[in-house]
Design a binder for these strands. Structure first.
Lengths: 224, 224
DNA sequence: CTTGACACAGAACAGGCGTTCGGTTATCAT
DNA sequence: ATGATAACCGAACGCCTGTTCTGTGTCAAG
């Protein structure tokens, strides 16, 4: 019996071909040939595979370089995207100042870095001046940040309401991560955990904003 | 006159070939053929290109799939490009079951995905069966996981002590993320936040482990 | 000077691989 | 019934492409 597609949309077999191309590309680092597609999809004739590839191309899901071996590529997502290399400047912990990179710092020569896909980065923080810190200790726990977490920061001296910032309270000799709110009589540092009380800082008290938190990454690595 | 290489290291021509392969790959999304390399590098014989490619392969700068058209790939610098594409299967929230991908699921054709650099992945969880869920609501707050966070999970039906797991408590109709500990009389589900009390589950009560949490990602996106 | 390693050229061979074309079967509207 | 169309098969054709083999000129060591 025949398939029931009748010219509109994408059928099961089209999908299977797309899946195969993607996984083959992933595994072999180059696209499959028409005959390899046919073998995987139980299509005995190369002309039928060609027939389907033509349709996929018309649907805009595939690009083809005719006459070139394996000259096809999936056109939707860009699997080989770019990523940012963010330098890990050190650790952040209560009672210690926050290390800040010098302006001429080159992330590619840094010893310790983390790679972040640009597709993961919020908004337009794609600038290259980002830096990362590893959290040490449980002191940030009211910011929903655990021991060992990696926080990615964008250097900043001021912040808008609702942004999470890294602040240095010099009189308390304390480093902390909190949501930042400006109020009439000073600043409110709101923990991320809503069950916890905010810290109120008067205008007279010193408060240095060191950076805005852009992202938090927690790796769950346990034992062996 | 001849080139002056004499068997050791990489010469000017090797470098030109590597550069060409890289730029050709960027432009065409697939590697060049031997003859195309020859044309660009002013090498009239395919055997000479092959000769150079062999050397590059011996140097470990190139990999080749013999007999396969354009079956070569640069192996050296991968500061950019080595990432996992993890499908976002849906949301996780209290009172809802956890969506689990079918075994034949292909992440590369998924509509919603997140890209994670393999360098960020813990241990050897580099398998392709990972999936991601977006946290909805504050119910996971005692697991140090906030509304909007992305959790990356590895499918699992059982866990070892100390691992963070996604569990489905069918009698309480509740989904939750907790650290897992097996004890004499049942299981202890320990919140990540040490100021909070654990949940004790008796052996008689139903407890379904759905997956182990491998990573948590929090994007701090605020206003515009 | 001889020898051998090295860096090439060129041609021929053999598979790989996309393309094309003539047929076949099933479904469906006319 | 009949023609149109979609979904196939198989084989042949021919370019694409990697491989291999023979040969040539250079250069340094013995």
């Amino acid at each position: 019996m025949m398939m029931v597609r009748k010219s509109k949309g994408i059928g099961e077999r089209h999908q299977k071909i797309l899946d195969f191309i993607a996984s083959y590309q992933r595994e072999h680092k180059h696209p499959p040939s028409i005959r390899e597609i046919g073998e995987y999809c139980d299509i005995s004739s190369t002309s039928v595979v060609n027939y389907y590839l033509d349709q996929l191309e018309k649907e805009g899901l595939l690009e083809r370089d005719r006459k070139i071996s394996r000259g096809m590529r999936l056109v939707n997502n860009s699997p080989l995207g770019d990523m940012l290399r963010v330098p890990v400047m050190g650790v952040i912990q209560a009672g210690e100042p926050i290390p800040i990179p010098p302006s001429d710092f080159n992330p590619f020569t840094a010893e310790d870095t983390v790679d972040i896909a640009t597709s993961l980065m919020p908004s337009k923080e794609k600038g290259k001046d980002l830096f990362a810190l590893q959290v040490q200790g449980d002191s940030m726990i009211d910011a929903m940040i655990n021991d060992g977490d990696i926080v990615i920061l964008k250097p900043a001296q001021e912040a808008r309401n609702g942004e999470m910032v890294a602040v240095w309270l010099s009189d308390k000799n304390e480093t902390t991560l909190k949501y930042f709110y400006k109020e009439k009589d000073g600043y409110r540092l709101q923990p991320a955990n809503p069950t916890m009380k905010p810290i109120m800082v008067k205008k007279s008290e010193p408060l240095e904003i060191k950076g805005k938190v852009v992202m938090v990454i927690r790796k769950m690595e346990r034992m062996n």
